[in-house]
């Protein structure tokens, strides 16, 4: 066990609770963009993929690391662009600004 493990677990648990309490308050109208945005956020794997590419040596490791980077890049870039396209479309009716949005 390395020294940082407890600290890492600490971050992990706090983030789980944060995610839990954030999402319970999202209205159904936004479920798709929400899922799509969190889908892009787990594209943070691109950070991990970068790290393994930096240190990769030997053909098989380089191929595996490059594949990881490719997949993670698709995930993160595609995820954010698709979410943005979705959210761009959500608008309120101009005539009924006063009505409370659901």
């Amino acid at each position: 066990m390395h020294a940082n493990l407890l600290q890492e677990l600490f971050f992990f648990v706090l983030a789980v609770f944060t995610g839990w309490s954030l999402i319970t308050k999202v209205p159904p109208v936004l479920h798709t963009p929400l899922m799509s945005a969190t889908n892009a956020i787990h594209g943070v794997l691109v950070v991990g993929a970068l790290i393994v590419v930096f240190t990769a040596s030997g053909t098989s490791q380089i191929i595996v690391a490059a594949l990881a980077l490719f997949l993670a890049t698709l995930n993160v870039v595609g995820g954010f662009v698709v979410t943005d396209r979705m959210l761009e479309m959500f608008r309120k009716s101009p005539t009924e600004k006063g009505q409370a949005a659901k």
Binding site: A15, V16, F17, G19, W20, I41
Partner: peptide, 8 residues
């Protein structure tokens, strides 16, 4: 980030 997405 992973824990955030996992729980949501």
């Amino acid at each position: 980030a992973g824990a955030l997405v996992g729980s949501s």
